[in-house]
Design a protein around this nucleic acid. Sequence first.
RNA 1: CGGGGCGUAGCGCAGGUGGUAGCGCGCAUGGUUUGGGACCAUGAGGUCGAAGGUUCAAGUCCUUUCGCCCCGACCA
Length: 489
Amino acid sequence: MASKITSRREDYSRWYLDVIREAQLAENAPVRGCMVIKPYGYTLWEAVQSGLDRRFKETGHVNAYFPLFIPKSFLEKEKEHVEGFSPELAVVTIGGGEELAEPLVVRPTSETIIGYMYSQWVQSYRDLPILINQWANVVRWEMRTRPFLRTLEFLWQEGHTAHATAEEALAETLQMLDVYADFAIRDAAIPVIKGRKSEREKFAGAVDSYTIEAMMGNGWALQSGTSHFLGQNFAKAFDIKFLDQNNAMQHAWTTSWGLSTRMVGAVIMAHGDDQGLRLPPVMAPIQAVIVPIYKKEEERAAVMDFARAVEAQLKAAGVRVHFDGREELTPGFKFNDWEMRGVPVRVEIGPKDVANNAVVLARRDSSREIEAAGGPKAKQFGVPVEGAAAAVQALLGEIQASLLSQATAHREANTHRGIASYDQFKQALESEGGFLRVHWAGSSEDEDQIKADTKATIRCFPFDAPEGEGVCFYTGQRTERIAIFARAY
RNA sequence: CGGGGCGUAGCGCAGGUGGUAGCGCGCAUGGUUUGGGACCAUGAGGUCGAAGGUUCAAGUCCUUUCGCCCCGACCA
């Protein structure tokens, strides 16, 4: 019974690919760098969508849809934007067999076409703010791809707002960062650090970019969502102008913010273990799986009836439950199968349980080893059937909290502080990896040099920085600024 | 775009010196099994990535070509 999943220690990158395959989340498509998201993986994406969409609407946003094709000239109107995106554009030059008068780019992001439309929609301060989100696919012709983390085509949402004042646009930018962080922490159980991007890492065309950064199982960082304050850059490029209360013509202030299918990759890498996926109950497509167990044919009917009644009880209580009635597989196989696929709670029901009028509950976030080390009980035997749904719900809540605290503990254990020199920095990165939380007074060129030397980049300048003044490990200057460096996907 | 590797059954692979294609898993059927990845029997499944060439004969040798994977540079 050799594992079908490479251990994380042996090869993290292969582990990631193995988990995606074995959990049936996605497969490579015939086209390089593209993936097919399979139903189980897509259901996870739907959990991202519903978790975010609810929050967007609660904060006053509405959904709309803008086209896939953008006139090439649009991309060229904002200088930094075109420089940032032109190397990775897919361009359509032929349509219906005819050469096009103007090539169309497949959107890499929609600031330009939405900016164009906003310019037509905005005349007065009374037309603002515009608070629109769209769920869409985008294409960026990346050199190197990985399922969910970086694919040529990916799914995301992109919010685009326009405001009358800088203050309001900035407040919107930060509000949406909070929305992302709230989703990541409460739904995905991934602790994230909110912060501002460095000049080098910010979005092409933004004044400032803000990010939520998460730590993956191997200590690398993953930018999991970004919110951009675009200032008046795009408003000027696309002529989004309005008359204010004093009859003066003003350019609008815009924002954009996006979160993609990459979040599914974040869930895999933040929580997964050597057995496979571990899904946070809030997002799990299946929260509890029922595995009926019987030896003899005489036992079968009794076990099935009992198990179906438990299924009905869980369903009625609002638990997303799946009944694994596959006849051709043994219970042992099913246990492993559902563990690989990350189902938080397994309900085992056999003849002994029927006799006791009870069920067995197994939790995915524990194991015999973890239990032996003082962790939660991996399996609870003899849970009375009358209270099964309540017991499962309580367990789901515990698992949600436990995944978040495990991920937080992992991040803290792999965050290095008090680094005083570049040598120490390099040594910490080499031996331990993880986040390097340092005082930073360097320039963009210094950042480039560090990236060239170590592959580590500034993930963000965290908002929450209680350290106070200290000495920059690189320049030796005194500074209050804290930067988090890490290797990143 | 640089550096490696690989294209043979659904998947993973084997097929010295050329001789008409095989193994494991999976799949189908039947039977025995089922509380931590069951077993037996029978069976189905192949234009060997593509195109040219050498040869009586090519998975194997030669040429060309297409594609994919992994590691870098680039990026959400």
